[in-house]
Amino acid sequence: MRAYPRIRFMGSKYRLAPRLAEVFASLPPGPAIDAFSGSGVVAYTLKASGREVLANDMLVFTSTLAEALVANADEQLTDADVARICSPSRDGRDFIASTFDGLYFPPSDHAFLDSAWSHIDELEGAKRALALSALCLAAAQKQPRGVFTVTTPRYDDGRRQLRMSLQELFVEAVGRCNAAVIPGRARARCGDVFDVNEPAAVAYLDPPYAPPRDDTCYVKRYHFLEGLATYWRGQEIMWETRTRKLAKRHTPFASKRTAPDALDRLFDHFRAADALVVSYGSNAAISGDELEALIGRHRRSVERIELEHRYAFGTHATAQRRAATEYVFVGR
């Protein structure tokens, strides 16, 4: 689990993965589903424990991470692959350089992303997913706080990655991705959670947490990575926005008005699983008691585990205010 590449991702369970591994070990053996796989670290944890895993997420870039690092059992990028991706452009494309000129990264970094994509377009399968994952990891590392809601350097915290080129960060990221590849049976898919219909001993559910204020729109925060994973093909760019955002995608889990019904439907959808493991935060609009009651509608027994957690990087005052209790409910 320590080998899994870390990415600054809203709601990531990287720090909680060891504790979740203990929970999974207490449950019936058999295949598992990570229905909202996000950064992929929990699906990877399930795979590392010996379970067959299905990782699902609605975002392309997170599903690509799962394809490269969870579903992939033995493929790696070679030095020759990396040299080719880092070589001059195959076709002179400049979509990223022209679309994001003056935003996020220097012109040389944008040119590298265009050039890298010209070679990645010739890759297939796990190698393609690995290369795109490394590109996304590099871009997330160089963007302060890892989100693409701002275009200025005001959050520059002095990390060395902010001084490195994206090509240098890409090469480092390839090494981390290659090192994380482990044998085992796993699959990755990109789609709506209610289209997942697989038998499972364990269904792990980590839906977006409906906040009291603001929102949990992952597309708003990670639109550049979502576009980068697809070269913006099939994506709707909001050209009128300064940040070149992608159109928002509705999810009923993100609103305190629609979340209770959506969660009730979710727990019913996975009623055939031997056990449900549900993650949720105490700083959400839905209380732990409400969530426990919803799970209890579909399970004979519900155990609540409370873990102290902080959904932020850093030690600044805002980060400290984001300290919360992570609820882990186990429904049998």
Rank of each mutant, 00 (worst) to 15 (best):
Q143N: 13
P199N: 14
G234N: 11
D195G: 13
V181H: 06
L65P: 00
D206F: 07
K127W: 12
V42F: 05
L65V: 10
L294R: 11
H269P: 12
T151N: 11
D94R: 14
I85W: 00
E52P: 06
A66C: 15
S165H: 03
P260S: 05
A262G: 01
A140D: 08
D157P: 08
W117E: 11
T318M: 15
A25F: 02
A319E: 07
L307A: 03
A323C: 07
V277H: 03
V277C: 05
M10Q: 14
H316M: 08
R304M: 07
P153C: 01
D109N: 13
K142C: 02
P208D: 04
L162T: 07
T243V: 15
A68G: 12
F224Q: 08
A229G: 03
D34R: 00
W239M: 13
D195T: 11
Q320F: 10
N197V: 15
T258R: 09
A48G: 07
C86D: 11
A275P: 02
E124H: 12
A272R: 15
V147L: 14
R271Q: 13
E303M: 11
P144E: 11
A21S: 10
Y204W: 10
A201D: 06
S89V: 07
H223Q: 03
H223G: 01
P88V: 06
A186I: 04
A17W: 00
A35R: 00
P18H: 06
L228G: 05
P252N: 09
A173R: 10
G125T: 06
D289G: 08
A111W: 05
P5C: 06
F270L: 07
F148H: 04
R322K: 15
R187L: 09
V60E: 13
T62M: 04
L27P: 05
A262T: 02
D268C: 08
A254D: 10
A111S: 13
Y218L: 09
G281C: 09
V219D: 03
G191L: 07
R332L: 12
G175Q: 07
P88C: 12
R242C: 11
F148M: 06
A275F: 00
R321L: 14
D121R: 14
F100S: 06
G30L: 08
A200I: 05
M164D: 08
G191N: 08
V328N: 00
R304P: 08
F267V: 03
S39D: 03
A25V: 06
Q235K: 15
W232M: 11
K220H: 10
Q143I: 04
Y44W: 13
E326R: 04
R299I: 07
D195Q: 14
E52R: 14
H119P: 00
R8W: 06
K142Q: 10
P183D: 06
F24I: 11
Q141S: 15
V82P: 02
H250V: 13
E172K: 08
P28C: 08
I286G: 04
P212V: 14
L27F: 05
L307Q: 10
Y327C: 07
V60Y: 07
L103F: 00
D94W: 09
E236L: 15
S279A: 05
L54H: 01
L65F: 13
L135N: 03
G30H: 05
A138H: 01
K127I: 01
R271I: 09
K256A: 12
L135K: 04
D192W: 09
D215K: 13
S165G: 12
P199D: 15
R189C: 12
D206Y: 08
T64F: 01
